[in-house]
């Protein structure tokens, strides 16, 4: 039987929506798909959205998650919003560096600094 658990936690602040991934490992395609559906659902409910994706709990991910982030990013920017990532642990940040996705994503130390300057 497949395990049912919350994969994201959503927090609405004045200037942004913060989505925190609750899984420690994001690996399998079906997990990535479920996660993408959950995130896209939040994005599509809003108009232009300032979205912060918080990786505080995430200790491991595969390249499929990078694809998810790129798809979410496209959707957010097409709708006139902004996407910021935060709380990425050093091992995972290395993956972003190797793939040069540090040039694509705005990455912040934590949710507080990611919130700065958003209107």
């Amino acid at each position: 039987m497949s395990e049912l658990k919350p994969r994201i936690r959503v927090e609405y602040t004045k200037n942004a929506t913060i989505i925190t991934f609750t899984d420690e490992k994001i690996l399998e395609e079906r997990d990535v798909r479920a996660l993408q559906e959950a995130v896209m659902h939040v994005v599509e409910q809003s108009g232009p959205i300032n979205l912060i994706l918080d990786f505080y709990n995430v200790r491991f991910l595969s390249s499929a998650v990078l694809g998810l982030l790129l798809r979410v990013s496209k959707r957010v920017y097409e709708a006139g919003g902004q996407l910021r990532l935060c709380n990425i642990n050093p091992k995972i940040y290395e993956i972003f560096k190797i793939t040069r996705l540090t040039r694509v994503f705005d990455i912040y130390r934590d949710a507080l600094s990611a919130l700065e300057g958003l209107e």
Binding site: L68, K74, I98
Partner: peptide, 20 residues
């Protein structure tokens, strides 16, 4: 996948990561 034309593509990074 690190080239400008491929940077935004959602897949194609597995081989690079294995090598890295």
């Amino acid at each position: 996948p690190r080239c400008d034309g491929n940077l935004f593509k959602p897949s194609g990074r597995g081989v690079l990561l294995i090598q890295a």
